[in-house]
Amino acid sequence: MESLIVTQNLSKNYGGVRALEDLSLEVRRGEIVGLLGPNGAGKTTAIHILLGLLTPSSGSASVFGLSPLTHRHKIAPRLNFSSAYVQLPSNLKVLENLKIFSKLYNIPDAPKKIASLLELMDMTSLASRITGALSAGEKTRLNLCKCLLNDPELLLLDEPTASLDPEMADNVRKLLKKIQKERNIGILYTSHNMPEIEELCSRIYFIHEGRMIAQGSPEEIMKAFQSKTLEQVFIKIVRSGDFVVKEPGL
């Protein structure tokens, strides 16, 4: 399978703070990859580098084989991004926001595209609502609508379910799985919610304090840490402070 994202020894220091250290990862077409770690592990830092929002201190990052810093305009039309911490303008209507972004992404036949996405996200009846009046779950679904406007080949999702209740988070995961299967896109998904990652991702990169602790399928990682759940792995890693890099299956 073709690589959509490749990073090599990616590092980022903010002044004295080491946010990311020698991160090497890969996301291929058609797979959902989890970037996992506690708060402050460096997940958002990695995503921002891939989006061209952040300059790495050293190492390399490429998206579709291009550098996000120098070729952002070639990369941007082919990917999309969503995060619980980024919102569409709250004072505009749902439909207005989607219209604006379909222009920013140069979507041909936007009305049709928007209608089909609203349908997919079960939001048709909310089209003329003010965005700020939506519930957290509806906002997340709207963000995902925006994410799919340009039929992206790659989705970067930074804790997209962070503000959702378990039932709604489950809906969103099912939807993502469906999209990924139907469209064969690659997804890089960050979270500190272990069961979520276990359910969704075929491969995981586990990072802590900017460093890669483990990588592999959820099963491989659980086996390597002699744990029954990823949650146990998580707690072991965070509490041990001893970060032996384990690369099960490699």
């Binding site: 989006l51 991004f81 919102q87 972004f101 920013l104 925006k146």
Partner: peptide, 9 residues
């Protein structure tokens, strides 16, 4: 919303 704009084309 600014990040949405900055990551768009």
């Amino acid at each position: 919303n600014i990040v949405n704009i900055l990551v768009s084309p």
